[in-house]
Design a protein around this nucleic acid. Structure first.
Length: 156
DNA sequence: GCCAACGTTGGC
DNA sequence: GCCAACGTTGGC
């Protein structure tokens, strides 16, 4: 299958791109997703080698800050089974796993943040999901042309 | 901190 | 299966 492109949101005060870079092997498991659409993308479609726009939300400088790569395909999100976890879901169980995650690896940090504002103002990105009003999905597919454009803006 | 938009839950 | 109530997301 051809390489696919994604956008994943993270609150930088929880886990920033910098945190990803500094993690062991610059890799982390993307736990805590509790939305079915986002889960389905991770569980059913994400493949090793797919590239991810890393997006910072809920912060001073909102936007895409760099790129990560999918390095492990989906497997159960263990935090759903941990009663002490913020992400615990009593309806998930060992036998009937409800939530899944992938691993991603740091790939590059942009020279500068490609802000949401800027993306909204870029005609080529007009149909990008992330800039649509009320778009809350934290894992979403991105078209290659949009991916390339955002990378170009961030690295120019 | 506010609040609009959205997703989920649960009573009926 | 509808829909009101509630909780969450996330830009501002």
């Amino acid at each position: 299958m051809a390489k696919q492109y994604w956008l994943m949101k993270s609150e930088p005060h929880v886990f920033s791109l910098e945190d990803l870079k500094n993690a062991p092997n610059s890799t982390t498991h993307w736990d805590g997703v509790r939305n079915y659409q986002a889960r389905n993308f991770m569980r059913d479609q994400m493949k090793i080698g797919d590239l991810v726009l890393y997006y910072h939300s809920n912060c001073d400088e909102i936007g895409v800050v760099g790129v990560a790569e999918v390095c492990k395909e989906s497997y159960p999100d263990h935090t759903a089974l941990d009663p002490d976890s913020h992400y615990f879901d009593p309806k998930s169980s060992q036998e009937n796993q409800r939530w899944f995650m992938v691993d991603i690896k740091w790939e590059q940090a942009f020279k500068r943040t490609v802000t949401l504002q800027e993306m909204k103002a870029t005609p080529e990105l007009e149909s990008m999901r992330v800039i649509q009003r009320g778009m809350r999905l934290s894992v979403q597919p991105v078209e290659k042309v949009h991916f390339d454009k955002v990378v170009e803006m961030g690295t120019a």
